[in-house]
Design a protein around this nucleic acid. Structure first.
Length: 806
DNA sequence: CAGCAGGGGGCGT
DNA sequence: CGCCCCCTGCTGC
């Protein structure tokens, strides 16, 4: 179930509503066509509804006991999300994730009257209807809970936090402690803007948001004496101190434990307001995918803390079943963001840009190892920098990179703009939160739609009729379901007809690949590839890897691989990495060989180049580049740290998961990635990165055994050890004496059928292995080999691989 | 030296 | 997991 923060601008007054559901485990069937919802126990109604093509039988409030009823049609809904989704898809309401410019920086779901107003699609009464429905839902919840409407806060600190109602109806949370646990017996309605994971609300009649990590740097140093929430005013005597925060934390291993060392850090900025982090973390736990608010200026916790926070929250992320597709940017803010993210140098494009989704990615901690072999001498060095356009990023100073996804007017393709210049040190840390969110989202298959949603939503926010941009969600499956862009997130409509618990599997099996292909096609077919915003136009779109300055002080060298005829200079090899979509030259992008050394940089993607390389000496004494891909990265590149390898694999997996090329396998060709490249003619030094396979290198059998050389399977009765369990099993018969395969003509028995097969040849006289030089024949190949070795020169031949006769 | 048995690894399913 | 293969060691001639 979901909690939803609704902020209506229709009355120019903040109206914040918390939506909660009681039956958190209840499943619903959602009609993929009209979005009507049916309880699972009313599946017959659902079937009837489907049989009548949604026309005759509608699950209304009267028929379903639905709490939420559409104000424009009689359909009833079991969930507020469903109602909003219905309003969005059927009645063309627009739901926005609004980027707030206030200090809270909270994204709000906005039911807007602006969209499609010109087309008469908006019914003001609908807004009120939704709001009233939501209010009713809330009232019901309150009644069921019998809650007091008070939020109780507990902590090991006497005074934990202060909740202020902001001027926009959003609570600001200021913490006085380095540890925080928020508990509540019920949410105050409806002014409370605190959203928590619903799943924890009703189990113990309390809200637990312990999974939310609060950035320490923003903690309020001065303890507060009271708590205010909306109109509620609580003093400290009303705090529930029955549960000490420390015990709560200790009892929940997953809960964050903040150290005193970190706490000391927080004192450096006692006046920071953390509401944005708190609420964004809450949102992260809820249904709304947070998008970057570039206005953030406060500092957040250290990277590790944020990572843990994000990871933990990601584990609790359950956005799939009740997600709404949200327009990322409020239309009124588009211009502003355009200006800020695109810059004045690209004003021509602004008029064509209808939406901008700016996300922050962190340039991974890249530590590229390079091993150079010259005349038998091996030397290694670490590559420490990555260059994007004209901007160099030092790996040691891995910084967030703003990647703005621009959507053109036609909404046909996202335009990727990597702009490393837009971030400032002041907000880098803050942006880490969203960087991690983006990464986690990318890694979550549940949210695979997110990257394409902005594109789709752009159509909606443009006021275009969505019918013009319908796409079929699963052509490959021939299910015929049509999807209205911007109306789904993560799930297709046909997914809604699946029992929720099976939707994830359904989505993965039915849609994931097709979606990727669609995205790939969309990008490939696009002629709107724009240039990387970089002053260094020549280098735009190409990521370089720099060499660390040489010991002799010479400058590092850069190598551009965006050119097909690029060649490494003799003596030094370099590797670059072309990121498609960043290329200035759309022609070269379109004409480039598919699956060759390029990746599409999806919105918010983090890119990494897991590469090491070395040089080998050719016959003529010159140096031949030897490119070692990530396949050999881990096994051979000792110069590469494990953390880097992990990052590389992680990111590659991300890419692979999201944009699996399918038949367009991007794996190495021509052996350019293998050590066998040394045996090639060296004409193609271009790097080709296998996006589909990550760390195990199974796709390169020449470089990796299928089975490990280690012997993890150890015999308990002797010192024997084996690399496979089956071998240990066979070995154990040595101790147990169990030999199931018995010879019918003698007392011989063995543990293995093949051995019995060989044994039987004694009785049959079969000698299938015959010497090609004499009349010798034997029953075992190994015996023949010995014979050949003893009686015939090795050069004369070898043993037959198979019996020459029967 | 030949014959045979058995252990262990590789690979397809 | 089953099967096959390779290798090694033992035994007898």
């Amino acid at each position: 179930m979901s909690n939803l923060l609704v902020y209506s601008e229709s009355q120019m007054v903040s109206h914040t509503i918390c939506i909660q559901r009681v039956e958190e485990e209840e499943d619903y069937l959602t009609c993929g066509k009209c979005m009507s919802e049916f309880r699972l126990d009313r599946i017959t109604s659902f079937i009837k509804h489907k049989k009548q093509d949604c026309q005759e039988y509608v699950e209304t409030a009267a028929t379903s006991n639905a709490e939420l009823v559409c104000g424009s049609c009689p359909q009833g809904f079991m969930t507020a999300v469903g109602l909003l989704r219905h309003a969005q898809t059927i009645h063309k309401f627009k739901l926005f994730l609004q980027r707030s410019s206030d200090i809270t920086g909270i994204q709000k779901v906005t039911v807007s009257q602006e969209t499609d107003a010109a087309k008469g699609m908006i019914d003001q009464s609908m807004i009120h209807s939704i709001r009233q429905s939501l209010d009713r839902s809330l009232e019901r919840d309150d009644q069921l809970e019998n809650g007091s409407g008070e939020i109780l806060l507990t902590s090991n600190q006497p005074h934990v936090m202060d909740l202020h109602q902001s001027e926009r109806g959003i609570s600001n949370l200021q913490l006085a402690s380095n540890q925080c646990q928020i508990q509540t017996e019920s949410l105050s309605r409806p002014s409370s803007s605190v959203m928590v994971k619903h799943s924890n609300v009703y189990k113990n009649n309390e809200i637990n948001i312990s999974n939310i990590r609060l950035p320490l740097s923003n903690l309020q140093a001065n303890p507060v004496q009271g708590l205010s929430l909306g109109n509620k005013q609580l003093n400290k005597t009303q705090f529930d101190t029955r549960k000490d925060i420390s015990s709560i934390v200790n009892n929940q291993t997953s809960a964050p434990v903040l150290t005193s060392e970190n706490h000391a850090t927080t004192m450096t900025s006692p006046n920071e307001n953390i509401s944005s982090h708190v609420l964004s973390a809450i949102m992260k736990s809820g249904v709304i995918f947070p998008v970057l608010n570039k206005e953030f200026t406060s500092q957040s916790a250290s990277d590790s803390q944020v990572n843990q926070q994000s990871n933990h929250a990601a584990e609790n992320m359950n956005t799939q079943e009740n997600s709404l597709a949200l327009t990322d940017v409020h239309p009124r803010q588009v211009t502003q963001i355009n200006q800020s993210s695109i810059g004045s140098g690209d004003t021509a494009n602004q008029t064509n840009l209808l939406s901008v989704d700016t996300q922050v990615i962190k340039q991974p901690d890249v530590s590229f190892g390079m091993t150079t072999q010259t005349n038998g001498q091996t030397s290694s060095q670490i590559l420490t920098g990555v260059q994007i356009g004209s901007q160099r990023i030092e790996s040691q100073q891995a910084r967030p990179v703003l990647v703005s996804t621009l959507t053109d007017k036609q909404g046909t393709s996202p335009v990727l703009v990597a702009d490393v210049n837009k971030h400032s040190e002041s907000n880098n840390r803050d942006l880490e939160v969203y960087k991690e969110m983006a990464v986690n989202t990318l890694q979550s298959s549940d949210n695979i739609e997110l990257s394409s949603t902005p594109n789709m939503n752009s159509n909606v926010s443009a006021g275009e009729t969505s019918e013009n941009t319908n796409i079929s969600c699963c052509d490959s499956q021939k299910c015929g379901v049509t999807v209205i862009p911007g109306t789904h997130e993560g799930l297709k409509k046909c997914c809604n007809a699946v029992v929720p618990k099976k939707r994830k599997r359904h989505f993965e099996t039915k849609h994931t690949l097709s979606l990727r292909n669609k995205l790939m096609r969309r990008l490939s077919d696009s002629n709107t590839i724009r240039s990387c915003r970089s002053s260094d136009k020549k280098n735009s779109g190409t990521i370089f890897i720099d060499l660390e300055p040489n010991e002799d002080g010479t400058l590092s060298q850069k190598f551009n691989t965006s050119s097909d005829n690029m060649a490494f200079p003799a003596g030094v090899s370099g590797i670059g990495y072309e990121v498609s979509g960043l290329s200035r030259d759309s022609g070269s992008y379109l004409n480039r060989p598919k699956g060759k050394g390029s990746v599409i940089l999806p919105p918010g993607a983090v890119f990494s180049i897991p590469i090491s390389y070395s040089l080998s000496t050719q016959n003529d004494g010159s140096l031949r580049p030897l490119i070692i891909s990530k396949h050999t990265f881990q096994t051979e590149a000792s110069t590469v740290s494990q953390s880097t390898a992990y990052t590389a694999n992680k990111l590659t997996e991300t890419f692979s998961n999201r944009f699996k090329m399918g038949t367009e396998n991007v794996q190495a060709k021509k052996g350019a990635m293998d050590t066998s490249a040394a045996e090639n003619d060296g004409s193609d030094n271009r790097l080709e990165i296998d996006l589909n396979h990550s760390e195990d290198g199974e796709q390169n059998p020449s470089r990796k055994r299928r089975y490990p050389t280690s012997r993890p399977f150890k015999c308990e009765k002797c010192d024997s050890a084996f690399n496979q369990r089956i071998h240990l099993k066979k070995h154990m018969s040595k101790h147990t004496g169990v030999k199931p395969f018995k010879c019918q003509q003698c007392s011989y028995s063995t543990v293995e059928r093949s051995h019995l097969k060989v044994h039987i040849r004694i009785h049959t006289g079969e000698k299938p292995f015959k010497c090609t030089y004499c009349e010798y024949a034997t029953a075992q190949n190994s015996t023949l080999k010995i014979h050949l070795k003893r009686h015939h020169k090795p050069s004369q031949g070898a043993a037959n691989k198979s019996p020459t006769s029967v």
